[in-house]
Amino acid sequence: MGTHELKALVITAPGINCDGELAHAFEAAGARAERVLLSALARDPSRIARADLIGLPGGFSFGDDIAAGRIMGALMRREVYPALRDAAARGVPMICPCNGFQIAVQAGLLPGPAGAARSNGAVGVKGTAGSTVPMGAAWPDEAAPASVALLQNQRARFVDRWTRVEIPSGTVCVWTHGLDCEAPDDMLPSAHGEGRFFTDAATMARLEAGGQIALRYSRDENFNGSMGAVAGICDPSGVIFGLMPHPERWTRWTQHPTWTRLSADQRQREPLGLRMFRQAVQWARTRELAPAARVPAAARG
């Protein structure tokens, strides 16, 4: 129906190094990706307003000195938080893998505003699991202080490995909601030194109740010691998705660690990483076509 090409904005900065594969993942899912330096974005935040999707890639922003994502988070808080907050309120899907997750947490973008969603009468949509997704939750004017953290892995060392993952059935995350990851080869790669999810009990309870836990490591695969085996979370509206694994690194089946063992049938199935991007692109397209009547991303299959 002649829709225009969706634009995915991939934000880079000194030390960001997964921007290439993130851009490719957006393109494989049908969007057009554009990479932009944070310094350029700070000069012209309106580029965020024109984006249909946003990616905050992994890497070692500013060397991950002090702590992972700390400096980049502090800069984003100052320079682009309002524009990103507005994008989230508009329902623009944003993915933040690995360092992106660490940055989003430090920049006050995740886990996002607490509690205010329903009281301010925001539009809610019905998720397939029956949860109500609060849209346009009230983001504070100033970035909130971090309320969750990604700490050093429990063995205090960088680890590269693929793990099985689970998607909580009640999640409101537009990236993962309803995706099937039951097959044994539905895995995701992780590569980080600081990925141990941590928060206080009250915040954890709120995230659980609000469907904001978007991804967990499967049982026995919680290699970094994350609280509740949490691998990824989203904001209350489900559009901003932060996760330690790298779905952008599994968009072709030859990237899978045991692809030489997969049958022809198994190779027919789209990789889990690509399915996440497709679902978000689909969401963005739907949002654009009918901004007033947002529908949840349909679970495929």
Binding site: N17, F158, V159, D160, Q255, T258, T260, R261
Partner: peptide
């Protein structure tokens, strides 16, 4: 040693340094 290196970055790896189920 191998697991301390990010051998997946750039998303290009096809045959990884450790192979087979459970690498």
């Amino acid at each position: 040693i191998i697991r301390q290196y990010d051998h997946e970055v750039q998303g290009t790896s096809v045959v990884k340094p450790l192979v087979g189920p459970g690498a």
